Amino acid sequence: MSDLGAGFGYLIKGQRWAFGHGRWFGFGLLPALITLVLYAGALTGLGYGADDFVSWATPFADDWSSPWLGLLRNTLVVLVFVFGMFLAVITFTAVTLLVGQPFYESLSEEVDRTEGGEVPESGLPLWRELWISARDSVRILVRVALYGVLLFALGFIPVVGQTVIPVLGFCVSGYFLSEELTAVALQRRGMVLKDRLTLLRGRRMMVLGFGVPLALAFVVPFVAVFLMPGAVAGATLLARELTAPPSTDPRPASPYTLQKD
């Protein structure tokens, strides 16, 4: 449980860092604002079209009597929208990071600089970094989609589908959200996707402590935009922790202590 709290601590510390560095906070808002406009349109379209989609997908239920027809289709409409929100939480970060690659890499470097120690640089041209980010994001999204389809199917199980499955969905969202965000700092440290996933699996509870609260917050409209700069900052701090050599000091460092510039 200590890792769970530590992960949440890095999320809070990242937000404090961003709000304490106003220029970098504003710098990090721009890509998220652009992406928000795109996603707002997509989710609005989903909201209006979910009924028609469910009706088209369930022609076998056209002759069902009340209340079974309404119960089936209303449940499916809710599940379709929840599935859309689930994908939006994950893909929002991926798309925002892709749009704002130069912004967030510079922000991540500044976090490393203010925290002291080495400031890694990838040394790759921008087009190469964009290609790697896009390729890795697609690989992650494929994994997320597979989990999403499985969770969507399990959502039909009575009681469990309305209680346990949404919790699992946010855990999956939070885990892969953390992967996307820490990738900014870990790619600068020369780590490929396979190595990053291995690293995160080794501290799964810390990763969930960071990512799940963020995934929950990202569901609230506009919150994702304002949390994004701090999320990148916090993920950089988390990456520093995950890649730090073992300490000889038996006392664990508190992730809640903000180092001053």
Rank of each mutant, 00 (worst) to 15 (best):
F8I: 01
P31K: 04
G190C: 08
S178Q: 04
L214T: 08
P59L: 11
L197V: 10
V223T: 11
L227K: 02
L87R: 08
D51G: 10
D261K: 11
T44D: 13
G7R: 01
L237M: 15
A40L: 15
Y39V: 12
K13R: 15
S247Y: 05
A235D: 06
V78M: 13
I90L: 14
L4M: 12
A253N: 05
W17T: 04
D62C: 00
Y175K: 01
L200S: 03
V164K: 04
Y104S: 04
A145I: 12
L72V: 14
Y39A: 09
W131M: 08
V144H: 04
E121H: 13
W24R: 08
M85P: 01
L124I: 03
T248P: 01
N74Y: 13
A231H: 02
L76H: 08
V119W: 01
A231M: 02
P102Y: 08
L177I: 06
P246F: 08
L46C: 09
S66C: 00
Q162M: 11
F53M: 15
A183H: 02
A57N: 09
A88F: 06
F86A: 09
F53Q: 05
F27V: 04
F226M: 09
A88Q: 12
E241Q: 14
P125Q: 07
V223R: 07
L30Y: 11
G22K: 10
S133W: 07
P221D: 09
L181P: 00
S173Q: 14
A145Y: 05
F81A: 12
G234W: 01
A224F: 03
L30M: 15
P250E: 06
A94E: 10
T114D: 13
L168E: 02
L150P: 05
K194H: 11
F27C: 02
E109S: 15
A61W: 03
V167E: 00
G155R: 03
R143G: 14
F218A: 12
G14S: 07
L193C: 02
A40Q: 15
F226Y: 15
S65W: 07
G14E: 01
V111I: 06
L216D: 06
A239N: 06
K194G: 09
A217T: 10
V119A: 10
G155T: 00
G5N: 08
V167C: 05
M206P: 03
L197H: 03
E241I: 01
L177T: 01
G190E: 11
E241A: 11
R135C: 08
G26T: 06
Y256I: 10
W127F: 13
V192E: 13
L242R: 06
G117E: 07
W56A: 15
F81E: 09
S55F: 13
H21C: 05
F86H: 15
V80T: 09
F152Q: 00
A253H: 07
R204F: 15
V160I: 15
E179M: 09
L151G: 00
A153W: 08
R201L: 10
V167T: 06
V142R: 11
F226S: 07
D112G: 03
V167G: 02
S133L: 14
G190W: 00
F103E: 04
